[in-house]
Design a protein around this nucleic acid. Structure first.
Length: 198
DNA sequence: TTGTGTTTTATTGCCTCC
DNA sequence: GGAGGCAATAAAACACAA
């Protein structure tokens, strides 16, 4: 170790509260002060200009790393929230798929039977058991959701992944003039429900 | 008291700008 | 090429549990 370094280390002292306060105040206005301001601060606080310059350098580094930590924390929080939503939606989606398959089977079975009671099925969410789809003697009904966006999400999931399967089966009837392609699936104009005839 | 982790002050080496 | 900034690092100062 050099003599200069030894001397420097032996003389090292933490800055006083007043010195820190003054430096912090200046930093809040100007994180990169000019040489003249640094010299002025050094004279005022009884420090070497070099010490003031180093203090600002270290302060900038600390400030930057704290900012990065905050950004990380915010991003992590957003990610956790989205992951949680994703998990919930995935579970709901799985439930809907199962129920849709069940409905399809029941609809296939019920083709020969035209009593109303036997042709009345509902598709519910897993969380609150609120009917989302309903099938009765009049056809397929989309119940209104309190949250229109969720309604759209559900229906898009069903549409993309499963309606094709259903169309291959017996649920869609082109004979009576209505298919999932030709009917308006979503009614954003505000109707509380919409019916398809089978 | 002491071991350990954190914070603060300072150095070093590299890079950019004028 | 010198001045100043930044990243990485060293080491003193400090906090605190055991």
């Amino acid at each position: 170790m050099s003599t200069a370094k030894k001397t420097s280390i032996n003389n090292r002292k933490r800055f006083s509260d007043d010195q820190i306060k003054s430096l912090e105040t200046t930093f809040s206005n100007e994180s990169r002060p000019e040489l003249r301001l640094k010299q002025h601060l050094a004279n005022k606080l009884g420090l070497q200009p070099r010490q003031v310059a180093i203090w600002f350098q270290n302060k900038r580094a600390r400030s930057k790393s704290r900012q990065i930590e905050e950004q990380y924390s915010m991003l992590k929080s957003d990610y956790d929230q989205l992951a949680s939503q994703m998990e919930t939606l995935t579970k709901e989606n799985q439930t809907l798929v199962i129920q849709l398959q069940r409905l399809k089977k029941m609809a296939d079975k019920g083709d020969d039977e035209d009593t109303e009671n036997k042709n009345h099925f509902t598709l519910e969410t897993s969380e609150d058991q609120r009917p989302l789809l309903e099938i009765n003697s009049q056809g397929l009904c989309m119940q209104s959701c309190s949250d229109q966006n969720r309604k759209v999400d559900y229906l898009e999931d069903i549409d993309v992944q499963y309606m094709a399967q259903i169309a291959e089966g017996g649920l869609t009837s082109h004979d009576n003039g209505c298919s999932f392609e030709s009917c308006t699936l979503l009614d954003n104009a505000g109707n509380s429900s919409q019916w398809w005839d089978f």
